[in-house]
């Protein structure tokens, strides 16, 4: 019995010692903020494939102690010059109690020369957060782009902040094209455009799909995209313009609602790698009975292009609105 008590005692004592050994006394003191010019940056655009024509947005913050001086200018150097619409905000934002962003002007609107965008401060301030909107240019397609944020203060100090590199997608994007039954119903993947029969007859080699709307008793057809080379059963009442005979491969899908194509809705993205990996072995030459939010993976006859066509809207009047992402294979 005595042995059991002894063992219990030592176990408890050991446990107490173990627990107490971790607790050290730390005296907390408020850290002292640096008075020097300093900066920070975040990317405001969520992770996604960066597509030419879209924007990448950043928020660049800079500050120094009031007694040290004031901000003189801020600039951003992009490794590839941004397209039209690239700017550095000349307002610094804060969020009010209602949750709204409120801008306060701190200088003249930014000036962009080649790869550099600059704002010169015209007010006496020691802190600002400026937003930078970079419109991805055609020159950046398939390349990497990075950014150098720079701030200068009257104290003579200069700080920089490097962001990136960010991979720009190879794919192209075009939104909201409207096709109509028996009128503007010929679609070209190469041109990412729709034509009527007259225009299609002038570029027959570029026509990859025919849109048609048919109500056929007993079967589900209605809205359809059909390859010109599909059997005539799938092109009821269609007389193709001379020379329109491309054999386009089609895979119908559902639930793949790319945010770029779905006009900002949903949270999925199709990226370059998806086009590279999609297998068209068992693809067909038609997609019938389409609904809104259907998608079509496409491959042109010459295998030069792969694309994803998203159905934004259909109308019982025989109209369809589509958006497309296209990837050039070679």
């Amino acid at each position: 019995m005595r042995t059991i008590y002894l063992v219990l005692f030592w176990l408890i004592a050991g446990g107490v010692l173990l627990l107490s050994s971790c607790a050290e006394d730390f005296e907390y003191t408020l850290p002292e903020a640096s008075t020097a010019l300093q900066n920070d940056c975040i990317k405001r655009t969520p992770p996604q494939p960066y597509v030419v024509g879209n924007s990448i947005q950043f928020a660049y913050a800079m500050a120094l102690a009031p007694e040290k001086g004031r901000l003189l200018n801020a600039s951003v150097e992009a490794s590839i010059a941004g397209a039209d619409g690239t700017y550095l905000e000349h307002r610094t934002f804060y969020t009010n109690s209602a949750g709204n962003d409120v801008g306060i002007v701190i200088g003249e609107p930014s000036v962009t020369v080649d790869y550099k965008t600059e704002v010169v401060f015209t007010v006496d301030t020691c802190a600002a957060t400026l937003r930078y909107n970079y419109v991805i240019p055609e020159e950046a397609r398939g390349k990497q782009v990075s950014f150098k944020f720079i701030a200068n203060a009257s104290s003579g100090e200069t700080v920089t902040y490097q962001m990136g590199p960010y991979q720009i997608a190879k794919m192209e994007l075009k939104r909201e094209m409207v096709l109509s039954n028996s009128n503007v119903c010929y679609f070209s993947i190469a041109d990412m455009a729709a034509y009527n029969a007259g225009a299609a007859s002038e570029i027959p080699g570029n026509i990859d799909l025919v849109y048609l709307f048919r109500r056929i008793p007993g079967i589900s057809f209605e809205h359809a995209f059909v390859s010109p080379a599909a059997p005539q059963d799938f092109l009821p009442g269609v007389t193709l313009p001379s020379g329109v005979n491309n054999d386009t491969r089609i895979i119908k899908t559902w639930g793949l609602r790319d945010q770029h194509l779905a006009l900002g809705r949903w949270g999925e993205f199709i990226d370059d790698v998806d086009f590279e990996e999609i297998d068209f072995t068992n693809a067909t030459k038609y997609a019938i009975n389409l609904r809104g939010e259907n998608g079509l993976w496409l491959e042109t006859e010459d295998k030069k292009y792969r694309a994803y066509l998203y159905v934004n809207m259909i109308s019982p009047a025989g109209l369809i609105a589509v958006s497309i992402k296209r990837y050039t294979m070679y």
Partner: peptide, 9 residues
Amino acid sequence: VLWGTNLKS
């Protein structure tokens, strides 16, 4: 199956 079904997939 419905008319027009792609039997390959």
